[in-house]
């Protein structure tokens, strides 16, 4: 049974996701971050689908379970395209788009193959535990990709404030989500799951559209910042 806080998170994240898409359409800026907008559109659509599934079949139903995890997998594929577009924007002056696209296609293919093999091997016991493990691994690939991108941003002294904030918000989202799934894997106490860990993925799911909506609203496309100052170097002035 869902509580008021679940509904609050659901409504808030849907509103923010829809806001990101509609505001970029109004600014005539949809194509500049096309994959990001398509991703937000898909997530908003998915939030509605999830609610319908919950309403018709219930939270404990098999339909809800499969819809949740299958749609999540599709979200990950779309998110990879978002990251690839960020890579292309960071490396735009080096004219290496062809190589980035090639590398991304290879990575996506390998991830799909790996996921297929793992799911195929475990098809007889596609349990929550297995799915949590798979989600943890997919999120962790996201953490690694975003971290490499952040490293490139710092190294190349990327100054576009909007792009930097979009990437950092994504990094916060991926690392927090991967960490929360890993914690769920490590501590399988039902009490901890029900009172703490259960809340984390939806909370971080709300963070991403919130941070992106904030960036698109408050940080102009032309704003610049000194990226070298953002990297955490403890003890170095």
């Amino acid at each position: 049974m869902l509580g008021p806080f679940d509904y609050f998170l659901w409504i808030t994240s849907f509103t923010l996701e829809a806001f990101v898409v509609v505001s970029s359409l109004l600014r005539r800026d949809f194509t500049r971050y096309i994959f990001l907008n398509l991703y937000m559109f898909f997530v908003a659509f998915n939030t509605v689908g999830l609610y319908i599934c919950y309403y018709k079949f219930g939270l404990a139903s098999l339909q809800y379970f499969y819809y949740y995890y299958y749609s999540d997998s599709l979200q990950y594929i779309l998110m990879y395209f978002v990251i690839i577009q960020f890579y292309q924007q960071v490396f735009i002056e080096m004219k290496v788009s062809r190589y980035i696209r090639g590398g991304a296609a290879l990575l996506l293919g390998l991830t799909a193959l790996f996921s297929f093999l793992v799911v195929h091997q475990n098809r007889d016991h596609l349990t929550t535990r297995f799915v949590v493990e798979l989600e943890q691994n997919l999120n962790f690939i996201g953490v690694v990709l975003t971290y490499l991108l952040w490293g490139a941003i710092v190294k190349l002294r990327e100054a576009r404030a909007r792009l930097v904030q979009l990437v950092l918000a994504l990094g916060v989202y991926y690392s927090a989500t991967a960490g929360s799934y890993a914690l769920r894997n490590l501590f399988r106490s039902p009490g901890l799951e029900a009172h703490v860990l259960h809340w984390l993925p939806p909370l971080f799911g709300t963070w991403l559209p919130f941070a992106w909506a904030y960036t698109f609203t408050k940080v102009p496309e032309g704003a610049r910042l000194a990226t070298a100052r953002l990297a955490v170097r403890v003890g170095v002035r």
Partner: peptide, 15 residues
Amino acid sequence: SIAAFLQFFVSYCRS
């Protein structure tokens, strides 16, 4: 993930 989260969060706030 926790180490990466801290670094991303601090960098985000600094930005």
